[in-house]
Amino acid sequence: MLMKREVHDFPSRDLFPGWRGHEPLAERLPQASVKLHDECPGLARAVAALPFARFEEADRVIGPVRKYNAPARRAAALADGLDPEVRPYWLCALLLSHVSRFEARFAETGLDGEFALHYRDHFHRILDQIDADPAFADLAQDSFLKDLWLARMVMIPAFAQVWWPHSGISAKAVLRAGSKAAAYVFLGCGGRKPFLEGHTHDPVARAYWNEAGWREALRLAALALPALPAARGVFGTAWFYDPQVREISPRIAFAQDLQVGKGALHIEIGSNEDAVRNATATSAERRNRYREGSYLPTDFAVIWSRRAIAAAYGA
């Protein structure tokens, strides 16, 4: 049975004034559906030709590990068969079909009842996006795929991060990091998969990617683990876990301070094009240092065992 708690037990409204987890969804859903059909007269025919259940069966998670950002080939082929003008509306309607069943299906996740509020917060944002521009719905876009997995209640909302529970840690990276890292992952965590992997979700980064949002993300990761008994722990890989970033961009050092030295393993992964692009995208200081050769953006991983994150951020 889901644990019931009073509203004041949830800090979200005080920490984040724009959070909408307590606002009902029921009235917004039919309005959003009507607008989609009004704007796209061919939508009903597309849904009849490609029922949502058929697409979902082709794109379901099979096995403990799967990439969230790689739709199954069969599912992608089914979507590609839709009229390109209609496809974004069909994908938005797919989101709505999941959100409309949220209240009835949330208990199936096994997650603590608090997560229902955090899903609802994301769903209000998704409805805003559908209303503003259905063209955002694109299977080639990372942001849309995260929203789809949120609507499916597979990806787990947690403010500064969304947690993907079907990830694994590279054995090569762990072994390269040495015996201490190998012992932590293979003995302390019990294996390298599956893990909850943290990802930044751009549509909410402005509101939630801050120290309070990160603290809540870690607390919610610990809160989610009892519903995921197979999970070995929690991890994330990013350029902002690089120790150099503490000196170059001290204002985001909290992402490390909340984790490194508190029971998590911290290992170097290496530099790559994604690390360079992500690290230099929003900071002139990091761009300039990279161009002059004094800074090479490098990915590091922070890895938590179940026991360690529960001790640091559990209830």
Rank of each mutant, 00 (worst) to 15 (best):
M1G: 09
V7P: 01
D14V: 05
D14N: 04
F16R: 12
P17K: 13
W19F: 15
W19A: 07
S33C: 02
D38T: 12
D38C: 07
E39I: 00
C40F: 06
G42I: 00
F55T: 00
A58E: 08
A58H: 02
A58I: 03
I62D: 05
V65S: 04
K67A: 13
Y68N: 01
R74I: 08
A77V: 03
A77I: 05
A79R: 13
G81K: 12
G81N: 09
W90E: 07
L96N: 01
L96M: 09
S100C: 01
S100H: 00
R101F: 02
E108M: 05
L111S: 01
G113Y: 02
G113K: 01
E114F: 09
F115D: 08
A116W: 04
L117K: 03
L127F: 11
A132L: 14
A132K: 09
F136T: 04
A137E: 12
D142N: 09
F144P: 03
M155L: 13
I156M: 09
I156C: 06
P157D: 06
F159D: 08
F159G: 06
W164Y: 15
G168A: 15
R176D: 13
A181D: 07
A181Y: 07
A181P: 08
F186A: 05
G191S: 10
R192G: 07
A205W: 10
R206N: 13
A212W: 12
R215T: 15
E216Y: 07
A217P: 09
A217V: 10
R219T: 15
G236F: 15
W239H: 12
F240K: 05
R246P: 00
R246K: 13
P250A: 06
R251L: 03
R251E: 11
I252V: 14
I252P: 01
A255F: 08
Q256F: 05
L258R: 12
G263C: 04
I267D: 12
I267S: 11
D274T: 14
R277H: 14
E285N: 10
Y295S: 02
L296G: 00
T298D: 06
I303N: 12
W304T: 01
R307C: 00
I309P: 03
A310K: 06
A311N: 08
G314F: 07
A315R: 06
